[in-house]
Amino acid sequence: MSAFIRFLIAFFLLLMVIAVGTAGYTLIEHWPVSDSLYMTFITVTTVGFGEVHPLSEQGRHFTIILIVFSIATVGYSVTILFTYIFEGIILKAMREYRMKRSIKRMKDHYIICGCGDVGREVALEFKRTRVRFLIIDREPEKSELARDESILFVKGDAVDDEVLLEANIEQAKGLVSALPEDEANLFVVLTARQLNPRLTIVSQAEEQRTIRKLLKAGANRVISPSQIAGRRLASIILRPSVVNFLDVMVDGPSDSMRMEEVAVETGSPLVNKNLREAGIGRHTGAVIVGINGPDGKTKVNPSASSNLSTVPIRENDVLIAMGNEAQIQHLRNFVKHGR
């Protein structure tokens, strides 16, 4: 039972005691309602002002019963009231303190600016893939994600430098600007790029004319939700089997085949080996379908005389792999440790 429900129960119990006391004195002593109500209040609150009128024997018996019930009811109501008020305040303060402390310790995390429809979907995907992230929003309490205590929020305007610094942007790995206004996204991208030149920035854009401005401001990629939605609708109509296959690869359950990317970091034992020499498929069961280089170019089939298996793996390459969750995890360990 929630604290609010307990508060309502206590409130109605208190009203019931007052109503019963007033009705009892009115019926037993034949007093006016105002005198009965006054007598009930001084009895329930135990202030000891004395009787309004002399009580009959039945009235004294009724007063004894009323005092017993009122002490229990008032005691319960006061306890619930203080619990409802102070527990909410203390819990809120404690949660904010834990949130700020967790944010200060975050490194290589992702920042989502805006918790609208697009930002919410980004957050849910981040949570599903178990990456560290936080959300900046002006009114986080209005978001349905605010009920999830595992999600960190920074309350404020992402356009402000202080808010981005509070989100520990200098230690962040990436930022998604999902604000509804293109002008706000432009300011966020400009500010974020200045505060962290190494940051990977992805922004949404409502208008096509804003895309080029966002790229010049420092965004690595700019996404138009309406354009993507339109293309996907057309693809579902024209190529439903391909779309279904890609959905399974990207969003399928953990025991199904899916596509993931695995970074080749400095010191990996696979550096300067090609896929055939590394034996990735033999050791992990995962299938490498592409290699994305540091320049952003993806190698799939370099030429007619060679194939992907002969392409050497370089530092900071990203392997685009296909496999189930166990195979992908085995691949991550294999790329990092060679076993």
Rank of each mutant, 00 (worst) to 15 (best):
I5W: 04
I5L: 06
F7T: 03
L8E: 00
L13H: 00
M16H: 13
A19D: 04
V20H: 00
W31F: 05
S34G: 04
L37N: 06
I42H: 00
V52C: 01
G59R: 01
H61W: 06
T63A: 06
I65K: 03
I71L: 06
I71K: 04
T73C: 01
G75K: 00
T83Q: 04
F86G: 01
E87S: 02
I90L: 09
R95H: 08
E96G: 00
R101Y: 14
I103K: 11
R105I: 12
R105V: 15
G114E: 13
G119E: 15
F126K: 12
K127M: 14
V131E: 13
D137I: 05
P140V: 05
E149S: 07
V163S: 10
A167M: 07
A167T: 04
E170M: 15
S177P: 08
L179T: 14
N185Y: 02
L186G: 03
F187H: 12
F187E: 12
L190G: 10
Q194V: 13
L195W: 13
I201N: 05
S203R: 15
E207V: 01
I211D: 04
I211Q: 01
K213N: 14
S224T: 07
P225Q: 09
G230I: 07
R231D: 08
I236D: 14
L238Y: 07
V243S: 15
F245A: 12
L246G: 06
V250F: 15
D255Y: 09
D255C: 15
V264A: 01
T266E: 11
G267N: 13
S268N: 10
N272V: 10
R276A: 13
T284C: 01
G285H: 14
V289Y: 06
G296H: 05
K299R: 15
S305Q: 04
S306V: 09
T310E: 08
E315P: 14
V318G: 10
L319K: 06
I320H: 11
M322Q: 14
A326F: 15
A326L: 11
F334P: 05
V335K: 04
